[in-house]
Nucleic acid binder design. Structure first.
Ligand code: FES
Ligand code: FES
Lengths: 145, 145
DNA sequence: ACTATATGATACTATACCCGTGTCATATAC
DNA sequence: GTATATGACACGGGTATAGTATCATATAGT
């Protein structure tokens, strides 16, 4: 399950992708626009800077901007930047050493197969694609599975 | 992420599927065979009985057995029996009301799409398939079920 | 009937994680 | 110099996880 922290990170990245080219944007602006607690967002942005997804400028007129083009940043990049374990189906899928059974467990192969698909899908969704889709969304679709 | 509890539930179901037709099997036997803490397993089995995946018999010669044929029980059945939220990508995917943004969030559609795929895959993996897969690979391994 | 064996139903605990908040330091534009 | 911005940590309440402990109840075999 994606945590609130990772969800906020995605929102923030989306906002900055939407305003790519507008120069540096402050954390306060992002927090206000995307309904994210300011202090919490500060720590999240700090991590995104640390993982080279964002670049920051301090002082007046400072703020955050994307380190790469929106086309070159995927959802997987953001999720992994925040927490490499957050979206894994089972802990042994990430580190098979965690479970002595992983060498012969029949479930393991299946979970790994699904995990690879999920990661590939998340890796194929760029911020640019998401920003583009924001305008032309189909509201007739159900928003729950 | 699948919890330890759900992982144990799957193991237990696999063991019982492998021994389907052998009559009732005690929790102690399953715990020993599948490396699961006995007390913890007791509570898990209790839940699997409550969700009609297992049937139990009390007293001497009692124990657990599958309520349905191994072909008719999927990994999704077991996972959902233990915790309906455990394998969801994001909370808003399960309950869109949890997030005010779900009505217009571009990420939401993508996550729902992936979630539907994952659920379908888990729903397509039966205990029978897993047992068959495992016995084909591990006939002479020490911890085979 | 008695007993050993099995599940049923709770209550309890200890640790870790999640979701924030608070404080202070530091860099920069004007 | 000051207002504005990020950087680096420390702290805390609430909840979930992973077990444990206890007692009640049902049944097979003697
Ligand atoms: S060891 Fe990974 S799922 Fe069984
Ligand atoms: S509201 Fe569900 S992912 Fe954004």
């Amino acid at each position: 399950m994606i945590t609130r922290e990772t969800d906020y990170a995605i929102r923030a990245m989306l906002y900055l992708a939407h305003h790519a080219g507008d120069g540096a944007i402050s954390a306060a602006t992002v927090a206000e626009a995307m309904d994210i607690p300011y202090r919490f967002l500060r720590r999240i942005l700090s991590r995104l800077v640390g993982t080279n997804l964002l670049v920051s400028t301090r002082g007046k007129q400072g703020g955050l901007r994307l380190a790469r083009d929106p086309e070159e940043v995927s959802l997987l990049d953001v999720v992994e930047a925040m927490d490499p374990e957050v979206i894994t189906l089972n802990s042994c899928v990430l580190k098979s050493a965690l479970c002595a059974r992983s060498a012969y467990c029949a479930v393991h192969d299946e979970l790994c197969r699904i995990q690879i698909y999920v990661n590939a899908e998340l890796g194929a969704i760029s911020l640019a694609k998401l920003v583009e889709h924001e305008s032309g969304r189909n509201d007739d679709l159900p928003h729950t599975i």
